[in-house]
């Protein structure tokens, strides 16, 4: 196979590989794979832990201030 033929073949292969890419762009990409394998629940668990931790902290400060208010004459 000569050089020109190789070049044409490579270009054709590259052109072919770009087809799936073009097909994908007809519908918006969403994180469907993440939902399919269930890993999104890990993210939800992490976010909920942080949220609950922060709110528990605010609650603790709330109680501390209540105690201070009671101590004041």
């Amino acid at each position: 196979m000569n050089r020109t033929a190789k070049r044409i073949l490579t270009s054709a292969l590259l052109a072919l590989t770009s087809i799936p890419g073009m097909a994908q762009s007809t519908t918006p990409d969403m994180a469907d794979a993440m939902r399919a394998n269930g890993k999104i629940y890990v993210v939800v668990a992490v976010c909920l832990t942080i949220l609950l931790g922060l709110i528990a902290y605010v609650f603790a400060i709330d109680r501390k201030i209540s105690k201070l208010e009671k101590e004041q004459p």
Partner: peptide, 11 residues
């Protein structure tokens, strides 16, 4: 409401 926001918001 915030628990609902994070859970419903992501799922």
């Amino acid at each position: 409401l915030l628990v609902y926001t994070v859970t419903g918001g992501l799922l």
